[in-house]
Design a protein around this nucleic acid. Sequence first.
DNA 1: TGCCCCCTGCAG
DNA 2: CTGCAGGGGGCA
Length: 273
Amino acid sequence: MPELPEVETIRVGLENALVGQKFVDITVLLPKMFIGSTEAVTGSKIIGVSRRGKLLIVTTDGAYSLLIHLKMTGQLLLASLLGKHGLPDKSTKVIFTLASGDRLFFNDVRTFGYIRVHETKLLAQFPFLQKIGIEPFDPQFTAEYLVKLIHKSSRLSIKTFLLDQTKIAGLGNIYTDEALFLAKILPTRSAGSLSSLEIERLHSSIIEVMEKGVRLGGSSRTNYITLAGTKGDFLSEAHVYQREDLPCTVCGNLIHKVQFAGRGTHFCPYCQK
DNA sequence: TGCCCCCTGCAG
DNA sequence: CTGCAGGGGGCA
């Protein structure tokens, strides 16, 4: 479900809620979603919550830590922030009880997500972390960096390129479509066909769209919600995503939607070249 | 480097 | 009822 801005919003919430706390109990309701032994982290104190791309990393002071991927429909919800809303429900797959008595629920309707126990000192060797690309907010992610990256994958469509987590981390379908709109580039263009001016525009558009996403607390199409069960506001400001047949905010012509690169793909056929 | 798949719910 | 959904691993 979530892309970088959503995962970052959740990360900040988790950091505030979990750091300094201990897991006193972990109840797994669907075994395939919790990989490893719950006992390996029960009793450990949480010392940090970080993020790489769309992957959350909950580090403990013990030998084992947790990697959490929400994939399409995963949610993390904190009982103390939820109010009266009754959880667990049928999509709840893992329940963490903290020393404070608060509970953290891992819900996932489609069950694509996972929580994985991993040796703390070997976290960097987790395969996904080994091959993941640069963070959009990394100062080293410059227009020149993007030029070189694109040069190595010139035959891919620019949309496929942006969705590839081993190149740039954290972009998913929504933010890819939005970044390409801001950069005035058609998603179907081959990466290698972009001019240096277009790559510069794309570089700043990626950062702009990610910053805006984080600032607005992410986007909520259907499943994404914060730890408190509230929705993000980004989608109300989207230019193309989920705006098929609505007027382009810039030129007034209708936004098109096609299937491309295996995804619903939104664009303005007039603004984007 | 594309395509299928994991799975469930909901809109059309 | 079919098709589609914001991800990514594994396969040819």
